[in-house]
């Protein structure tokens, strides 16, 4: 697989402020990568560099085989879709008119406008002015805009802000369908549970630096976070010797339920012991979620981070 995006030691300075520091990143074709990080961590900066909207202060950016702000920019831009954060569109135009305008600029087929409006569920509102749209509807119009011309690379900046959970799921399923057809997707989001099932890899950023990069499995291995066991049964909190024997700290949830954090390598051993106990009715296992991993990596002391990446 060819790399679709390649960042080599890219630094972006803005006056004295370092927005991105020595970033190395390779994204393969057909991959879905999430950019995670606090506000100002460098997510949007990475997107703008890839879009060629800004040039790196040092280092090299390569998108679909050429520099995004170079002479091939026009050819490249027909092959990418971008959904910026907080776009309000032309309030006086209808949804259909907005999409038609962008379709013409992108040299996309006009028939695609209706197809996309249908796909994002805006057919009924298509001939109303954008002024009357809700936040979610604008966001869906934005997505339809990004999908014009069947892009090879999609950049989505906070795509699901303002969408309800059902719409969020539909959104990611639509994006996943594109990805399965070979489209590369780069997205940033604060709604971590929403994206967890869909992404291939996550890049966790902090203050313009890479804190962690990898698939969920890799991140879990690197983080060594415990699994959470939620145990339902009777008199659980009382059995202190039992927990001590397994060197676990029970956290009581209510009278009939406790939670314990179990290191990943002890998972099977603890499970075997628990299943032999007669007063336990049910055991729920949850591996560390993306949210746990994000919290882990983004609150780790900086010295550790440097050691890990070196």
């Amino acid at each position: 697989m060819n790399p679709v995006i390649e960042l080599q030691r890219v630094t972006k300075r803005h006056g004295a402020l370092v927005r991105l520091a020595e970033m190395d990143l390779t994204i393969k074709e057909g991959e879905m990568l999430a950019l995670l990080g606090h506000n100002g961590a460098g997510k949007t900066t990475i997107m703008k560099l890839i879009l060629g909207l800004i040039a790196p202060s040092s280092g090299h950016v390569d998108v679909l085989g050429s520099a995004p702000d170079g002479p091939h920019a026009e050819r490249l831009r027909r092959q990418l879709g971008y959904l910026p954060e907080n776009v309000t569109f032309y309030e006086q135009l209808t949804g259909r008119e907005v999409l038609t305008y962008f379709a013409r600029l992108k040299r996309a087929d006009r028939h695609q406008v209706t197809v996309l409006l249908e796909r994002v569920g805006l057919v009924e509102a298509a001939d109303r002015r954008v002024k009357t749209y809700s936040k979610g509807m604008r966001q869906r119009l934005g997505l339809a805009q990004a999908l014009l011309g069947s892009p090879r690379l999609l950049l989505l900046d906070e795509p699901t802000t303002g969408l309800d959970p059902a719409a969020t799921r539909d959104f990611y399923q639509a994006v996943k369908a594109l990805r399965d057809n070979g489209c590369t997707v780069l997205l940033s989001s604060h709604v971590l549970p929403g994206i967890e099932p869909y992404i291939d890899r996550a890049l966790i950023l902090g203050k313009g630096r890479r804190l962690a990069l990898g698939s969920l499995k890799q991140l879990r291995e690197e983080a060594q976070l415990p699994l959470t066991f939620r145990i339902h049964g009777t008199l659980l909190a009382m059995q202190s010797q039992l927990w001590k024997a397994m060197s676990l700290e029970p956290i009581p949830i209510n009278e009939r339920c406790v939670e314990v954090n179990v290191p990943a390598e002890n998972k099977m051993q603890v499970l075997r012991q628990l299943t032999t106990m007669p007063n336990i009715d049910d055991i729920e296992l949850s591996p560390p979620t993306l949210e746990h991993l994000y919290t882990h990596f983004s609150t780790r002391p900086a010295s550790l981070t440097l050691g890990a990446s070196a």
Binding site: L51, A73, R77, R78, P84, V87, F102, K106, R107
Partner: peptide
């Protein structure tokens, strides 16, 4: 201010 400029600049138009 509306955010559409950012979008237009990523389109195939100089």
């Amino acid at each position: 201010e509306a955010g559409t400029l950012l979008l237009l600049l990523t389109y195939p138009i100089s």
